[in-house]
């Protein structure tokens, strides 16, 4: 019984999943190592990537790999976080406005869709020429990407509130303000978090991607330097691995916060 429970547990599934990726990676790494002249440029072994991360060897000036990536992470994540926060606040406010006024919804929604459809790399130079500063543009783009999922999901959350809940509030002769604070806003929290879970990794990806456009100390800057031969290629691989982990973590953190502010999500059904 216990064993069966373990095999169907979330932890076990995650374990199998990670192991599966590692195995497939290694199969190809061995093939690459046997056939290509510079395998590290194509697909190094996982252990090489991990070893490089923890090695004392200086990869750039006086910095080891861990130090280099650590500083770069801070830069990029800070920008992603600021952009994410701005995008979340604006996205939420717009969803609120769209729900309050049908006219606002009709006018704003097509623009929302449009912003979502423009590729980030196409948008980046435009934002750069407007703001005149690459770091500001990085923040703005992270915000723009966060904006849509948060706004669209929150609006869907407002619209999904049961009709009867609104009728109850109506029968209590509640004010519009009370309708929002007591009913609409709390009930759309799960939808809001769905938006956050989608956009948190997106904000980070966007921040890294826009890093590559110009110099600086961000993850993307290091990544493109490594690709251009300015540093060992393992910097590139380490950054790829680390950013994947950060992306997944950012999703998990959103889930954790949701559970913290929604105690009812932690309870089980009693008999």
């Amino acid at each position: 019984m216990k064993i069966k429970k373990f095999f169907s547990s979330q932890k076990f599934i995650v374990f199998v999943w990670v192991l599966g990726i590692a195995v497939i990676w290694e199969i190809f790494a061995f093939i690459v190592a046997a056939t290509k002249r510079t395998p590290v440029n194509v697909l190094p072994h996982l252990w090489q990537i991990i070893e490089a991360f923890f090695s004392d060897k200086k990869v750039s000036g006086k910095m080891t790999m861990a130090e280099l990536i650590g500083t770069a992470c801070q830069e990029t994540l800070l920008r992603a976080a600021i952009g994410f926060a701005i995008g979340t606040v604006l996205g939420y406010l717009l969803a609120l406005l769209m729900n309050l006024s049908r006219i606002v919804e009709k006018i704003a929604f097509p623009y929302l869709m449009l912003i979502q459809m423009i590729p980030i790399l196409g948008m980046a130079p435009i934002i750069l020429s407007i703001t005149g500063d690459i770091n500001t543009s990085r923040i703005v783009i992270a915000a723009i990407l966060t904006f849509y999922p948060v706004s669209a999901n929150t609006l869907a959350g407002f619209k999904a509130v049961e009709q009867e809940k609104c009728e109850l509030m109506y029968s209590y002769a509640s004010s519009r303000f009370q309708l929002y604070t007591k009913t609409l806003i709390p009930s759309c929290i799960p939808y809001f978090f769905t938006g956050l879970k989608i956009s948190a990794p997106m904000a980070i990806t966007a921040s890294i991607l826009v890093d590559t456009l110009q110099g600086g100390n961000g993850l993307g800057c290091m990544l493109s330097q490594s690709l251009k031969g300015g540093m060992t290629r393992l910097v590139f691989w380490d950054i790829v691995l680390i950013s994947a982990i950060i992306g997944i973590l950012s999703y998990q953190v959103m889930g954790l916060i949701e559970k913290l502010i929604c105690p009812y999500k932690r309870t089980k059904k009693a008999d």
Binding site: E164, E167, L168, Y172, Q178, K182, P186, Y264
Partner: peptide
């Protein structure tokens, strides 16, 4: 004047509020 109490086919409870707080909701209003 809040002279009506309404009960629907489904209980329409607020799942983020405890049972006591659900009953308190109209009183908060």
């Amino acid at each position: 004047k809040q002279r009506y109490g309404i009960v629907f086919q489904s209980a329409v409870l607020y799942d983020w509020r405890t049972v006591r707080k659900n009953v308190m909701l109209p009183l908060e209003i």
